[in-house]
Amino acid sequence: MPMVLAYTDFSGNDIPIAGPSAAPPVQRRGIGRGLGRPQPTLAGRNGRGGGRPRGQKPPNFREGWSETNNFRPPPMPFTGSKGPNADYSGFSPVEIFYLYFTAAVWDLLATETNRYANQFMEAKPGTYHWANNPTNINEMKAFVAILLAMGIKRMPQYHMYWATSEMLINRFFPSIMPRNRFQAILRFLHLADNLAPRRPQAPRNKLVKLQLFLDITLPTFYSAYNPGQQLSPDESMLSFKGRLSFVQYMPKKPVKWGMKAFSLNESKTGYTCVWQLYTPVTGTTPSLPVFFNLTHLKTIQRTYT
């Protein structure tokens, strides 16, 4: 029996191209290998094989579906208790502040400030008389109180808070701390040891000078208060125009220059549950994973089942 080689055209008909009943040769058009020549194929309209059997209708993917405009997903069960972890009704504002600035914070401030001052004295002896008068926890509390008061009463320069003229006199700041002592503490204020060994295999941490402070203070935000069910991630800008590698410029923000921070807040009260400063590594650290990192809290996770 003679062999017949055929191909399938776009209408699904088998047309012989070799053998006794072969069709007349097709005229070529153009130059090149195989141009204008019918190619033998299997089933399929695109010439690549496979395809849908003849007579079968295309599938209707919308069958069994209906459109709705009022769909709401089922609520996730919330089993947590919202509110403070203790009764703070009789607390003064200073006592509330101490819930977040614990004794470990004040000890860190005093220890690292004295350490850096001593390191500076060894490198440049005789510059300051710090060794005979190191700072302590009570003095650091007075120093932070002055900084908070300066944020309320703004003056162009530090020394003007201790001015003695009738127009600029302010009795609060001189009663807390002398001007020279304040400037000396401000000069040596530190939160980490500059000579501490760094781990070369660890990824670069741009907040290494603040990491110990953040490790102490940030957990207090979600240990002192249990947030409710509705949480809202947000970003904010901390105004800053100094020399810093991760300063951001956002021309459409009210604060155009500064450090960008992400926070997870309770929607109804605005309470900040956790906060993270954005320190990008060029080309490797997008902003979006920071939001996912904010949700990795045991206090929040244990309230959902």
Rank of each mutant, 00 (worst) to 15 (best):
P38E: 12
G49T: 09
N114Y: 00
S263F: 03
G258P: 10
Q27V: 15
F182G: 04
G51R: 00
H190I: 06
L231N: 12
M140S: 03
A22C: 13
A149H: 02
M155P: 05
S236I: 12
R33T: 15
C273P: 07
H190P: 04
Q119V: 03
G80A: 09
N70Y: 04
M3E: 14
T295Q: 10
G126N: 08
V105C: 14
A117R: 00
P40W: 07
M160I: 11
N194F: 06
S287G: 11
L5C: 01
N60Q: 13
E95T: 00
G55I: 12
R52G: 01
N69F: 09
P219S: 02
Y225L: 01
M250T: 15
P280Y: 07
A184E: 07
P156H: 02
A43P: 06
T79S: 07
D9P: 01
N60K: 14
L214Y: 04
P75H: 10
K256F: 03
M160N: 05
Y161K: 04
D215W: 02
L148R: 03
L186G: 13
F246Y: 14
P2R: 10
P58T: 11
M177I: 10
R187I: 13
T164Q: 11
E166F: 08
N133P: 01
F61C: 11
A196P: 04
W65N: 14
N194M: 08
M250E: 00
L210D: 06
I300V: 15
Y88I: 11
N194Q: 10
G228P: 11
G151Q: 04
S175A: 10
T41S: 15
E266A: 13
A43W: 06
Q183R: 06
A149G: 07
K260T: 07
G36L: 14
T284L: 05
D9K: 08
L35E: 13
E139R: 06
F101I: 00
T295C: 11
G19H: 01
L207R: 07
A184K: 04
S223T: 13
M237K: 08
P77H: 04
F101N: 01
A123I: 11
V4P: 00
K241F: 03
G228R: 00
T295Y: 06
A103Y: 02
S267G: 12
A192E: 07
K57M: 08
F78T: 01
K253S: 04
Q27I: 15
K298Q: 14
P93Q: 01
W257Y: 13
T164G: 10
G270S: 07
T220W: 00
L238Q: 13
L244T: 09
S287M: 06
L231M: 15
F78I: 01
P289T: 08
R179K: 10
T269W: 02
F120K: 04
Y161N: 04
Y271W: 05
Q211I: 09
A103E: 08
Q229H: 09
F291A: 14
F291W: 05
N85K: 15
Q39Y: 07
Q39K: 14
P73T: 09
Y88N: 08
L5F: 03
L35G: 05
K252D: 11
R115Y: 11
K153E: 06
P74E: 14
N138P: 01
N180Y: 02
S232L: 10
Q248E: 14
L42H: 06
G36H: 13
S92R: 05
T113K: 02
